[in-house]
Amino acid sequence: MHQYTLYSHYVTIALYAAALLSTPLVQRRALIPISLAFTGFAVQLALLIVRWVSAGFLPVTGLFSTLHFLTIFAVGITLYFAIRYKAARLLPATMLVTLLALWKAGQGDMNLAPLTPALDTPLFFLHVSTSFAAYGLFEVGAIVALYRLAGLPASTNGMERRMLDECIYIGYILFSWCMIAGSLWAYLAWGSYWTWRIKGLWSTLLWFYYSGLIHVRNRPRWQNTPINLLTIAGFGLVLFTFLGLGLLFETSHPLK
């Protein structure tokens, strides 16, 4: 399993790097980077499924597995936008962020650790999958916001605002489900749906931050620069809540 994981990891990196390097072709032949990214995505997805079947549980603990899981969502959403909204120009930025994430993932342990008993609950699957799907949307939203801020067209038919809106709105709903599942799980595991653990506090912070963002996302006064900056800052909070806390602090969601 370790060899297969290692092999798939580097094949994915190679495919995404190729998708990034084929950027100049995006202007004329978007199919090439899209195909490369899609193949990398398929390899990653296959790796996840094989590890899932082998372990008997969704392998999303530790730095390696969580970063792979996050990038699956980010790449998947970008590919969806590339096809639905003709936004293949988003690919280079997503590929760059994904490559950075996979480089960091490579520093983590690739072996499948046994599932700790506390994680042996359907709420774990619900909590983690909705959380990373939301993180993926927030990441792609920040990339779209960055394009808008820089004045770069991301979509050939001018759907940048629509993409940004989908990332914030659907991301927020998924993150709300993550918070509800996490709170219910905490109630069953620790006897309280709310604790003052730092990870829980920052997750709530993130939820409230996007609660604010969702209220102004369509208000004329907050359009353009304010909403773009808030979306980028939101992803900064996501990174700190997910990676910063997990790597720098003693938390209930360790990545070290």
Partner: peptide, 8 residues
């Protein structure tokens, strides 16, 4: 909404 956002 602005009041809520500032509070948030």
């Amino acid at each position: 909404p602005s009041a809520f956002v500032i509070l948030a």
